[in-house]
Amino acid sequence: MNILAMDTSNQLLGVAIVKDGVTLGEHVMHGHRDHSVRLLPAIEQLMKETKTTPADLDRIVVGQGPGSYTGVRISMATAKTMAWALGIDVIGVSSLEGLAHQGELFSGYVCPFFDARRGQVYTALYASNSDSFEQIDEIVNPLFSDWLEQLREKGERILFLSPDIEMYRSMIIEILGEQAIIPEAAIHYARPSVLAQIGAARKADDLHQIVPNYVRMTEAESNWLKQQEQQK
């Protein structure tokens, strides 16, 4: 099975081609300002180098976010349309899950997160041990300090993974001390081949229905709901 995986939901632009479980190639770039310029050329280049044609593809795995609203739409629009044009399956995988899996050899909790501005993050918690790796609860969008206080209650070791780790390193250590495990740089950047690996085992999504997981409703909608509440 030939899989094309892509994710542009955060700073990283990632594209991978995985054939029968073997990563033929992957392309990872920083610079979230021009994902729209770079994504298709990156796909084209990688396919050329791995001697893969669009017709060879069997499924497309796309990072479903959360992250930048615009960023996640770029890869989602691309993935959906390619899957439709090629008549193949599309599978959405949480971008947090893709990152979390890079900690699957760890024993304890794994906490991937993306900065969501104003002290907030997008995050989820995973329980990892030698024979299983599971997500606990939904993806959430809390104030990171509140979230860290909650994690302290768990009393167990927690591995943190995030491309935004440096922004929050001191806060994590301050609240969790020795309980927090923060590895060195490279592992904080999600590899699109991991996304492909997760998506390989999943059931296909409905091509027309699949949308990004924004986690938050739009500001206009939440303001409108607040207004409706006040008028009651």
Partner: peptide, 15 residues
């Protein structure tokens, strides 16, 4: 951006 990326994906996919 949604339309542009969809168009690029389609043009690339069907050559």
């Amino acid at each position: 951006l949604v339309g542009v990326n969809a168009a690029k994906a389609l043009a690339f996919s069907i050559g």
